[in-house]
Design a protein around this nucleic acid. Sequence first.
RNA 1: CGGGGUAUAGCGUAGUCCGGUCAGCGCGCCUGCUUUGGGAGCAGGAGGUCGUAGGUUCAAAUCCUACUACCCCGACCA
Length: 508
Amino acid sequence: MHLLIFFKKVPKTIPKTVMAKDFSTREENYAQWYNDIVIKADLAENSAVRGCMVIKPYGYAIWEKMQATLDKMFKDTGHSNAYFPLFIPKSFFSKEAAHVEGFAKECAVVTHYRLKNSPDGKGVVVDETAKLEEELIIRPTSETIIWDTYRNWIQSYRDLPVLVNQWANVVRWEMRTRLFLRTTEFLWQEGHTAHSTKEEAIEETMKILDIYATFAEEWMAMPVIKGLKSPNERFAGAVDTYCIEALMQDGKALQAGTSHFLGQNFAKAFDVKYLTKENKLEHVWATSWGVSTRLMGALVMAHSDDNGLVLPPKLAPIQVVIVPIYRKPEQLQAISEVAEKIKKALQDKGISVKYDDRDTHKPGWKFAEYEFKGVPVRLAIGPRDLENGTVEIARRDTLEKETYQMTDIENKVEHLLDQIQDNIYQKAFSFREENTFKVDTWDEFKDRVEKGGFVLAHWDGTSETEIKIKVETKATIRAIPIDGKKEAGKCIYTGNPSSELVIFAKAY
RNA sequence: CGGGGUAUAGCGUAGUCCGGUCAGCGCGCCUGCUUUGGGAGCAGGAGGUCGUAGGUUCAAAUCCUACUACCCCGACCA
């Protein structure tokens, strides 16, 4: 088919030595490599506020694509967006015991509402006379304020279900932060739904989990395991927490999204009841679910290499960049005519294109720059191409470049983008397969966990055992796979009977 | 919050032990010319109260004290 004639010549790759200077490799220092990519690819930087980041335009453009895709998926399944306050009255927090227990330690608190000039004339100080009657918490998540609000929204079965999502920022006062993976303030979406039956709420929880998994795999090109969290890892206030769990290139697991079945916990805590058709008063059933800017971190670590960022075409802000190569202004003009034509043809296909005709940087510099920023496809057009009616196409995922006839270029590029999307998914999938191990003995387990990867093992189902394993190996249960096969066995740690394999790993 | 470290130009750093032409280098930035198919070359140029506040001294980037910020390792977490 198309692609066969597409890559007809033996692809040449770019020599490593000329690329990615001043840049750590994954082998040398994985954490540094991650940081270098985030900063040098212009995704984000540290801000003047400790633990908080500035998401730069290029990084934010990726987040916007994630938002747009997820937002449509939510709306297609009947959800609507709304917005609830940043501040939550402190008293709301203590209404659900497990919830307050889980979040109290990391809440930022607003105590005053006014500043005044400092008596010593240097700057401003808190005006002690402007103390809040009731202190406000900056939301670490919005269950409490939302359920306090839902009480007034819901009276009858006719008011159900309530299917609301909000895009918001939240604050969790973390000890140690890392760009995107864990920041004090982060952006996310949080869905909060209310249902008349337990079954419907569980169905909602699973529906969202499927949306998250689909998004991760089809848009981010990142394979994920869908699973249930163990009680230790469960969301504070949930009955069951489900997750999508991904494996990063350093062998550590990353929770990429969570969907919670909240039972009637919040309905009871906030007294949210409805009248059934039979005129009986019942507490409603709830779910909540979210993904955050942490997905950006996952995206970086899923595909990038020692030459910089690698983006899946479906989320790349710039899918194709065109770089002109010329000596004289007349050449640039001739190239630009062709380039603009190609740009238009690609745009007509819904492909985002940048034609970089800046004269302030040389072609080599631009090549390096766009490679670093993960632009999936680069077209280079020079005088030679004009003569021959050709264009050089380079793909970021494999670093291969080839020269093709310009005819039908927009279809070639469109197919290539699909191919890249598929290729990086397959690559990530193979990596996960190669780094997933089933172990049967404790010695094997310790050894495997140390080396990294997903470790499938039997577990006796108790929190005590999970905690002991965590203390001894730093590995936690990342997920009890939903589609995992039931299989009788013995707990890796205690030898007690177990009915299924769970996934252990060290985690972010 | 414990343990360790760092702070000099936009970024990366030398100098700190041994106080006195020590404020230097690389990248980046600006101007000009030559260049442009993988991060160009040459020439010229701009930019720093050496984290902050005190102290010692004839003299402090350098020694002393306090403070602040950041980084790494732990505990905690999406």
